[in-house]
Amino acid sequence: MQPDALKGGFADLPIQSATAFRSVLQAMARPGTIHQLAGAAPPPPLSVAAGVVLLTLCDPETPLFVGASVDTPDLRSWISFHTGAPFSAASAAVIAIGSWQDFTPLSAFPVGSAEYPDRSTTLITEVDLLGREGSNACRLTGPGIQDFYTLCLPDPALMQANRALFPLGLDFILTSDSSVAALPRSTKIEVM
C-alpha cells in the first residue's frame, strides 16, 4: 500500500457519490452533454473526472481493467483502497479505465449477449479534451438527444462499428480534467 493511496477519496461519500452519479446519469441519458465532476483526487495521470466516476461506480463486485497508459502502482493502490474493485483482464471487465489506445482492439471487451445485452463493459475513456470543434467532430443523434449534439470522438469509425452492434455493445464514459460526457451504444454517430 502506497501512503498516498489513503488520500483523494470522497470526504463525504454518500453525498458526493450521489451528486456525482446524478451528473453521470444525466450524461448517459443525454449523450453529448458535458457535465462537471468534483471531489476526488486520484494519483496522476488520472483526471479528477475519471477518479470521481471510479469512486462512484466501482466496488468489489466490478472487475476493473486498467489500461497501460494509466497503470501505475500508485493508481492501483488508490483504486484498491477506495473501491475494492478486483483488477481483471479486458475479457472479464465490468468497468475499464484508460485511454482510447489502451482499449483497442475493442473486441477484447464483452459486448453482452442477445438475452443479456447489459452484460457489457463500461469504458471510462480519458481524452485530452472534451470538445465540440476540431478533428473527429461528430454529429450525435438518437435516444436522449432532441436535435443533435456535436462532440469530438477518439475514433468515430470504431464507435460507429460499436453502434452497429445495438442492442449489444460497449458504453463509453468520456472524461477529461473535471468534465464528463457519455456515449452509450445507442447513439448514432456521423463524422462532420
Binding site: A18, L25, M28, D59, V94, D118, T122
Partner: peptide, 25 residues
C-alpha cells in the same frame, strides 16, 4: 443517506446506466 447502503446504491446506479444505454430493455 436515502436509506440504502452505499454498495446497494452503487449496484442500482450501474444498472440504471445500462438501462439508459439500452432503452426499453
Amino acid at each position: 443517506f436515502a436509506y440504502l447502503d452505499e454498495q446497494t446504491k452503487r449496484m442500482i446506479r450501474r444498472v440504471l446506466l445500462k438501462a439508459l444505454a439500452i432503452p426499453g430493455y
